[in-house]
Design a protein around this nucleic acid. Sequence first.
DNA 1: GACGAGCTCCGGGTAAATCCGTAGTTATGA
DNA 2: TCATAACTACGGATTTACCCGGAGCTCGTC
Lengths: 221, 221
Amino acid sequence: MEKNTEKIKVILADDHVLLRNALGAMVDKFEECRVIHQCGNGKEVIEVIKQGVHPDVIILDLNMPEMDGFEAASWLYKYRPDINILVLTMYDSELSMIRLLGSGVKGFLKKDIHPSELKRAIHSIVQSGFYFTNHNSQKLAHLFHTNTEGSMKLAQLMLTTHEFEFLKLACSDLTYKEIALKMGLPTRSIDTLRDNLFIKLDVESRVGLAMVAMSNGIVSF
Amino acid sequence: MEKNTEKIKVILADDHVLLRNALGAMVDKFEECRVIHQCGNGKEVIEVIKQGVHPDVIILDLNMPEMDGFEAASWLYKYRPDINILVLTMYDSELSMIRLLGSGVKGFLKKDIHPSELKRAIHSIVQSGFYFTNHNSQKLAHLFHTNTEGSMKLAQLMLTTHEFEFLKLACSDLTYKEIALKMGLPTRSIDTLRDNLFIKLDVESRVGLAMVAMSNGIVSF
DNA sequence: GACGAGCTCCGGGTAAATCCGTAGTTATGA
DNA sequence: TCATAACTACGGATTTACCCGGAGCTCGTC
């Protein structure tokens, strides 16, 4: 079973068993790869890692129950910064990309790529420690581009802890007053948080906030 | 290539190339099945069908660009009611189930099932014309259960054309007044639409509506 | 026709969300 | 050290969202 120890050891995390299995079969067919574990959420990943398993790559889905890709990536970055993380996402969002970069994620893949791209990504991240498609690179380059609107846009997409927490709570039936209570902040501060997010995320209503949060995988549903 | 014509001919529609390919490879490995086409959206499916291709099963994803699973299923039901449709969805939603049943969909699959379940589903829908998991059956049975809250709940989940249209428009920055304009209805009617949907969908704010719409695949994003 | 059910429409009122401008506090860096 | 920016906090004014009750309308059923 475990004969060929030179193979790239991959852990796959996605809550959809069907797709995870299909993807796992595909990765296993890449000759130099071997899926050593499949997990349904971030917690399972961490448990496996804690048991001493040391993969070369972890392919993380963003939306998962129990513990999502964001949280899992943050944990891994903190306690096992040597493990390469490749995030596989439905969305093409600068917002989550920025956050994930902060969590030490070194590669992004949209789910609409060609299988050969996945293969290339795995090799790239193992060999060079990172993987970005041209598309991603362009986005990043554009974001970090100084002097222009680029850097402003980057600043915009850096959400503070409060903003992030608020954004998640805004995706509910809760009143701003109730959200303020939950966050331990005065209602007025919530007003400012909201107003700032309206500008940062380029929306003009709470529904807009909720839509952005969902379409960027920030809230799981 | 096309030697074994007795195989079950499958068309696969999902906008995520990676997952679609992985899934296609899996289905192709089921000995009695053969994926004859892969499509990225509903429009492509319809084009293929119009060209005279006649599959035994079409496996449809719900969220797709251009033309989503709802629209594709409706078209197929109208013009090719003999083709079996199997809907593959991320969500476990009674709301979309009801709507899809009305579009002639005869089988549902959540993306978190085991591969063997997919195989069983394909065979079942080809042989008996339908496929429901125990879970689905229970949901349906519960919905159609007369005399109790069941039938009421069914009625609740049957959205009118206006309600459906409003629900989609509610997932935006538009004001109710603006939505009213777009729909050509007086603002007061929008009020009633909203109030009814609050009850039907068991939420108590517009954000709640948006969340339900998104988590049931009613709005694509 | 009488009836209820479902859809559309309305008035008036309260609470919430949104907009405008202002200002204190911290951290960062020239 | 002073300037700058980012975060937090506030007051007051306006618009929007939400809630309550009522009423006409069509349609199918008995």
